[in-house]
Amino acid sequence: MKIALINASPKLKDSASGVILEELKGLLAEHAVTEYGFHTPALPENTEELANQDALVFAFPLYVDGIPSHLLNCMAGLEESFRKSEHPPTVYAVVNCGFYEGLQNRHALHMMRNWCEKSGLVWGRGVGLGGGGMLPGIANVPAGKGPKKNFSAALKQLAESVGTLSGGEDLFTSPNYPRIAYKTAAEIGWRQQAKANGLATKDLFQKR
């Protein structure tokens, strides 16, 4: 089966979407996988091949309850090419958010499904992951272990759906550690980044 993994994070490296697709790639190793990067509003050059894929798997961060604007540009640019496709690919999407609750990604997944309807694509299923801010930091943790337990379980279910081109209910998962621990760790992280930029903690609260 021909599968396109599309990293639609605006970040070129160290993105949560990259960690997600790296693990999915391992789970889909028996298939012909091609990797794409949708990092800017301009579509990459080789996207005409997307219409010939069996499955498209998007991974992107949640931006204000929705799809990042650069990806909207790309999706709008692709609509026409898929409408002409005789064998439209099945679309899957993994959306991660910085909030704890994976369910907060549901609106972005609905939009992906609406895009499929507009473009003549087949909607497969989506995954909404909470705790996305931690993923780059635990990239080297083995799949399914420790803080990756819930994350890997959801991706395994998705890979089974992708590998059989089947659909299903959207999956939502939150980290397998307490919300207060995630909140505390994130807030320590912001202060460390501010300090690295020469700012004091109080500067984070500056009003303009």
Binding site: I67, S69, L72, M75, H107, M111, M112, E187, L204
Partner: peptide, 25 residues
């Protein structure tokens, strides 16, 4: 309306101004 959300331009302005909120939760 793009797929039940905003157009790329309107969403871009919204995306670029998340600092209306703080990073803390």
């Amino acid at each position: 309306c793009f797929y039940g959300g905003f157009s790329p331009f309107v969403k871009n302005v919204v995306d670029r101004n998340i600092s209306y909120s703080l990073p803390d939760f």
